[in-house]
Design a protein around this nucleic acid. Structure first.
Length: 652
DNA sequence: CTAGGGTTAG
């Protein structure tokens, strides 16, 4: 079993040193490939074996049939079934349960049932495979019927039986039946067994912990279930603790275990451990597999390492919907919305199937650009396909329309939703908030309360930003307190950042600074940047110096902050300080990145840099700007920068 | 040699 200890290359080398006249090494190879999830290779070796004139034995078939299941090839499975009968092997319980699994995994419930009935000897595993098959196909009634029938037979249910039937109770909310079963499980003395614990985990984390700690028989499967359950509940540290314990106990994590731990690393931004795991995955030749590839991509994305994201993606053997989705998300979450949309396109061209996740990920990229044209295109696609009533996608759509400045469309998406959850409400509240419509935000907030929707920290983020955009400082203070005291939602860094913005916009800079000093988090560049921006608007040089000190510390290469500080000094007429900032930039080798802006007109995107004369209609644009500014002056508005001049005529 | 555990989104 070199597959479990070393790499595929090692296994192959050893294989070719063995005597290939015998069936045994072939069986090992086929079983090894199947266990590692390399179903195609398992089948390839099966046919190589037949081609070499080696006849398979009864130990060969279960692995081969499982490999057929891995590539969803029922027809091949049936052909092998014919071969087995033709060779006169008869169908034992091992072949039988593998076949039933294959049928059930591909929705051939009737075939599975026929085979089950025909089996002369039925053991507990065979019953369990049938039971699990019904559960997987959503046939809860038949599953329960199967269970009751099993109770009437002489076969005793075991832990796996209960695990299957309990999962039906959890999904169908059959709480009464569930408690009844629980009593039965305890009566059978099975409570501490691993598969039961898995299912209990889905119901209650505390209970799972208790069972896990008391359990005498913990194996890799149970640890994996425990880890994934903890990650699902956001308890990443506990998940990593179990993983470290598993290694200490000399248990061997497999690809399923690794796929469960990686999201915990992603959540904690534990890049070092993540890289170690990646090294392990590479050593075992597992990095091209779908589950691990997607998890690795996400882990590197959350650590901000797009270079490694790209590397992992390039090395993948196959690409399914999920791994494309995590690519879109990776770029979108790392401030590269254009690339994210591009990947969304590539995904379609590569023939991958879009799902709700792809749609909502692409839409959130559109919202961040913001790109109304792409957003509308995807909206059209949603209407044509069946993605219209997906909560995630619709909330992202509200966000797109709001960020693209179209509140009306955002509201109509919200109004037409068949079903709304807290995210949908949060999206529309933030939409009004970012447009300065505090009253509408508050009306929706109370409507949300009235509808019994659960408020969360995002709801208050929307309300606080609404107060800020509307300049209602007192309301902001009120809702900030209300969140903590009345709803028991602890303030996060983002809420404090909203408060800094709220005070800053209103010119109450000392209170903004007070907020930063008193908050229980270490302020990030966003918070200091907000304060610096407010200092520019309200002309506070002293605080600007303070904020800049922190910003130059946090992001020494970000030219924007240096420029902003130097402009603040310039506004105050302190030309000596302006020169100091400029020389600091030079000293640190900070490059000034030109700012771009763009606008969509008739489905064409036009992009501009400062003092840009490259647009074909540049002359008209500048003359229009000039006349607009003259209009503004007539109305009494006197903007700071001097009148723009056409760069070609001014010789810049 | 057969059953139970895995990845992505606001």
């Amino acid at each position: 079993m070199y597959f479990l200890c070393g790499s595929i290359v090692d296994a192959k080398n050893i294989f070719y040193q063995l005597d290939l006249q015998y069936t045994l090494p072939w069986n090992w190879m086929i079983r090894g490939f199947t266990m590692m999830g390399y179903f195609e290779f398992a089948l390839l070796f099966y046919f190589k074996m037949l081609g070499s004139g080696i006849s398979p034995d009864k130990y060969t078939f279960p692995s081969v049939i499982k490999a057929c299941g891995g590539v969803n090839n029922v027809r091949l499975g049936k052909a092998i079934y014919d071969t087995i009968q033709f060779m006169g092997f008869g169908v034992d319980i091992f072949v039988g349960s593998s076949l039933i699994q294959l049928y059930m995994g591909n929705g051939c419930i009737h075939d599975a049932w026929c085979l089950f009935v025909e089996m002369p000897h039925k053991d507990c595993v065979l019953w369990n495979v049938m039971l699990h098959g019904y559960v997987k196909n959503g046939e809860s009634k038949n599953a329960v019927g199967m269970f009751l029938e099993m109770r009437n037979s002489e076969i005793k249910p075991n832990a796996v039986t209960f695990a299957c039937i309990l999962s039906v109770c959890a999904s169908e909310a059959m709480i009464g039946f569930g408690t009844q079963l629980h009593g039965l499980i305890v009566a059978c003395g099975l409570e501490l067994d691993s598969p039961v614990a898995n299912t209990l985990l889905a119901m209650n984390v505390d209970m799972a912990h208790k069972i896990f700690n008391q359990s005498t028989r913990t194996d890799v499967v149970m640890c994996t279930a425990m880890i994934s359950g903890l990650v699902l509940n956001g308890m990443n540290n506990d998940a990593l603790e179990i993983f470290r314990w598993l290694l200490k106990e000399k248990m061997r994590p497999n690809s399923l275990t690794l796929a469960s731990v990686l999201p915990a690393c992603a959540g904690l931004v534990a890049l070092k451990l993540g890289k170690e795991l990646h090294g392990n995955i590479l050593k075992h030749g597992l990095d091209g597999r779908l589950h691990l590839g997607s998890a690795l991509t996400d882990m590197y994305a959350k650590s901000g390492r797009l270079d490694l994201v790209h590397q992992v993606f390039e090395r993948m053997f196959e690409r399914d919907t999920i791994c494309w989705n995590s690519m879109i998300t990776s770029y979108s979450q790392n401030g590269k919305p254009e690339e994210a949309i591009d990947i969304f396109r590539q995904m379609g061209m590569a023939g991958a199937k879009y799902d709700c996740v792809s749609i909502s990920a692409a839409l959130s990229a559109c919202a961040n650009l913001p790109a109304l044209h792409y957003g509308k295109e995807i909206h059209g696609f949603m209407i044509r396909s069946a993605f219209r009533s997906d909560l995630f996608a619709e909330s992202a759509l509200i966000d797109v329309y709001a960020k693209c400045g179209n509140l009306f469309l955002a509201r109509s998406v919200f109004d037409m939703m068949e079903e709304k959850n807290e995210v949908s409400w949060n999206s529309i509240i933030s939409a009004y908030g970012s447009h300065g419509c505090l009253q509408d935000s508050l009306v929706l907030f109370h409507e949300m309360l009235g509808n019994g929707i659960l408020l969360d920290h995002v709801t208050f983020l929307g309300i606080l930003s609404a107060c800020g955009h509307a300049g209602q400082v007192d309301d902001g203070i009120f809702y900030f307190r209300c969140m903590i005291e009345e709803y028991g939602i602890p303030a996060r860094l983002e809420h404090c950042a909203c408060m800094v913005d709220l005070f800053g916009r209103a010119g109450r800079l000392s209170e903004a600074f007070e907020t930063i000093k008193s908050m229980p988090f270490s302020p990030d560049s966003g918070v200091w940047g907000t304060l610096l921006g407010a200092c520019r608007v309200h002309g506070n040089v002293e605080l600007a110096e303070e904020a800049s000190r922190h910003l130059f510390d946090l992001e020494p290469q970000n030219s924007g902050y240096y420029i902003l500080l130097s402009n603040i000094h310039a506004d105050a007429g302190k030309w000596g300080s302006v020169l100091k900032v400029r020389s600091l930039m030079k000293e640190r080798g900070v490059q000034k990145v030109p700012g771009y802006s763009w606008i969509e007109v008739n489905n064409n995107t036009h992009m501009f840099v400062a003092a840009d004369g490259s647009h074909p209609q540049s002359a008209q644009i500048y003359s229009m700007l000039k006349s607009l500014l003259l209009e503004l002056r007539k109305e009494g508005y006197n903007p700071q920068p001097c009148l723009p001049t056409h760069p070609q005529t001014s010789g810049m």
